[in-house]
Design a protein around this nucleic acid. Sequence first.
DNA 1: AGTATATAGTTACCATGGTAACTATATTGT
DNA 2: ACAATATAGTTACCATGGTAACTATATACT
Lengths: 143, 143
Amino acid sequence: MFFLKELPTQSMIKQYSEAYFPGQTEEVANQLQGLREFSILLRKLEDYFASHNLSQLRFLVLMVIDREPERNYLYAHEIAERLDVSKPVLSRAIKTLAKDSLLTSKKDNQDARALVLSLTPSSKTLLKSILPGYFQILKNKPT
Amino acid sequence: MFFLKELPTQSMIKQYSEAYFPGQTEEVANQLQGLREFSILLRKLEDYFASHNLSQLRFLVLMVIDREPERNYLYAHEIAERLDVSKPVLSRAIKTLAKDSLLTSKKDNQDARALVLSLTPSSKTLLKSILPGYFQILKNKPT
DNA sequence: AGTATATAGTTACCATGGTAACTATATTGT
DNA sequence: ACAATATAGTTACCATGGTAACTATATACT
């Protein structure tokens, strides 16, 4: 993600939005402001994850397995159901997570197509260690 | 960008955030909710731009030139100042925009290092045609 | 003048997002 | 039973984000 460094609200909104949607520029300005703030928040999270050999996606894959009640594993397609990400991207993420010993991946006994994914001791430790910082970043309103 | 399809507020926040920041889970939940909403908005914008042979970055490059007061051109490094994007990414975007006849790019007379970038008739027409839809998407609160 | 530094842009390389098309296996329906 | 369809995951390819290191030019400093 990227964003305008200078907020576009002044010149751009007045110049364009008012022409198309007179009287509604405030709503547009709010949305642009929000986009910018969450872009900054996203970037902070990305940097934080990167410093721990993770990414947004790698983190979320581990999280949805960890937080699954009753079971200590998920099928790949179940992760795909929970995250809004394309199959090839998830497939690659799973491979690199397994390569980094953050996931174990094995074929299911019942369904030979399906992959059973579980956390490893490494990833359990990693999750525990990064969660406080993760919530700390979320707690701070983006500026 | 991607995001959790199911909001994590219920299971995840209670399970984790409350443990680290008791009493502050509402703030965390709000941020996660905001991240999700703006991820959806971002994706709508991306899809809209893609349907017009643009991207967020390509659109913003054209916009900052168009909205520049007094001048009908910008130097590449001026665009870099206005957008929070790395130099190589901007460099590539400029090349493909020029290839698509949406920008003219020529060396500056005074400074042989600098690129002077201007809109073309095509990109002026394109901007005019997509701006109403752009603001329409911004106007609608993401769901 | 001539060296050192700063600035503008590019190249090379990698990570992460997408779609389309593919293989392999399961399920459905006759 | 077996053909048709659906599902699980992969491969191939492309777009877009980043950093590090490079070239070329301009500016600053003896």
